[in-house]
Amino acid sequence: MANDNQAKLSIRDLKVEFRAKGRNTVALDGVHLDVKDGEFVSVVGPSGCGKSTLLKVVTGLLQPASGGAFIDGQPIDGVPDRVGMVFQNDALLPWKTVVQNVRLPLAIKGLPDKEQRREAERLLKLVGLEGFASFYPKQLSGGMRKRVALARTFAYDPDIYLMDEPFGPLDAQTRVKIGEEFLRMWESVGKSVLFITHDIEEAIALSDRVIVMSPRPGRIKAEFPIQLARPRPFYDIRFDPVFKELQKEIWAQMSDGASGGVH
């Protein structure tokens, strides 16, 4: 699926520092990462390893101390075009209805009203929420809110999807269901994804490549290409022997990190 000769997103020698109470903490150090066009890359690692920080740099919301990120070879300066972020906590506007939330990126782009409505309705149907257009986020369950957030990002139609533990707050059952739906939706658009998670199974089931990060300061510790055929059954793939083997290896890498980095 991935186009081999061109990196959509490349991160070079990235170093990010936080200054708190007069002390510098290094969150990320020497991170080197490419995401090809149409490639699905997951980053797993223990909490506090700077996974989310990595995304903040790519969205242009955070300035790195050195190194940088490039999209199509262009350095990221400010919020780049065509990058869509899915937040861990949905980031829906509580005072807007479901359909207005989905329309938001289209309204910002300045599309005509009718087109906004048509596209929002199409996407709500795609995520199975066509009857809930006039509901407020508060009236929905966590899984439904997540669907709205996904529909909104799909409405924006970015070239790169950045996802920060998007299924984190969901219960196990909903998580599998939404993951499956998202995988199906993603397979139909085939855009690049940088996916942050701490769930190894989720990472393997979704990705073309899984990256393991070490605890703070976050460094890339290992990389695993996932050679499982697509389209994949999001849940049943877990019983594949290749999957099991990968899961074991990645887990070994991750738990090893607890006793100090590899570098």
Binding site: T59, V79, V83, G84, M85, F87, N89, A91, I108, Y156
Partner: peptide
């Protein structure tokens, strides 16, 4: 997060 979300769009 809401402000960041708006920025990313």
């Amino acid at each position: 997060d809401l402000m960041d979300m708006m920025s990313t769009y």
